[in-house]
Simulated scan of single mutants.
Amino acid sequence: MFLFRRSGASSTRASLHALRALYRSFIEENGPEARSRRLLRDWLSPDQRAQFDAEGCFEVTGSHTGRRYRVHYGTVSNVVRLDEAGQPETGWCFIPQGALAAGDVMLAQKIALETDEMAALALANRFSPKVQRPRVVRRAY
């Protein structure tokens, strides 16, 4: 037969701590935020991917006007139109319906600006880019 030793409380506590750490790492690597970020990176051009990895944002060229937009990491008020000098000119807020992770929202914004810029901006709310953007708050699991 099998012989089992009865483990002490400290051993059980250590096992639970290790299990929680494993669960947290699994969620960080496979949760909705991580999956949406991987999908976004797959759709970015090599230049956009490098900029996103370095700065947490990437630039997109509008399909109709050829203007440049910078899409920052986040879901709200994260698109800024740039002037010729690359400085923020006008902020735009538009998001797809539903509760989506930040990477999914950013991918939808990228596709909208690159394929039908005027329709996306017709739905968007304008804001002043001079106002400090709220910092991204990540969920603690």
Rank of each mutant, 00 (worst) to 15 (best):
R133N: 02
T115W: 07
R135H: 10
A50K: 09
L113P: 00
R41M: 15
G98C: 09
L22I: 04
G8T: 11
K130W: 07
L113Y: 04
D42Q: 13
P134I: 01
R20W: 13
R5V: 03
A14F: 05
R37G: 01
G8R: 12
R13L: 15
Q51G: 01
R81T: 03
G74T: 04
Q97S: 10
E29M: 09
D53W: 04
A119R: 14
N30T: 10
G8V: 02
R68F: 06
D83N: 15
L44S: 05
Q109D: 06
P96H: 11
E114V: 02
S7G: 02
Q51T: 06
T65E: 13
R133A: 10
P46V: 08
G103Y: 01
A140M: 10
V80Y: 00
L82Y: 07
L123W: 13
L113E: 01
R37C: 08
T65I: 05
K130I: 09
P46L: 13
T12I: 11
G103H: 04
R13K: 12
Q109G: 02
R133D: 00
P32N: 12
E59M: 04
R41G: 00
P46S: 12
R49P: 00
A50Q: 14
V131S: 08
L113K: 04
Q109L: 04
R13P: 00
R37L: 15
A18V: 03
G8I: 03
Y69A: 01
M118F: 11
H72I: 03
Q132N: 07
A99Y: 14
G62C: 06
R38K: 14
E89N: 07
S25M: 12
T12F: 13
A85R: 14
R70G: 03
T75R: 15
F2Y: 10
W43D: 08
S45W: 07
H72W: 13
L82A: 05
A34T: 02
V80Q: 06
Q97Y: 13
A85I: 03
G86K: 08
E55N: 07
R133W: 00
Q87E: 14
D47A: 14
L19A: 12
L16R: 11
A9L: 12
A112Q: 05
I95P: 00
L3N: 07
W92P: 00
Y23K: 10
Q48P: 01
Q51M: 15
V60C: 03
H64E: 15
F52Y: 15
E117W: 12
L121N: 01
I27K: 07
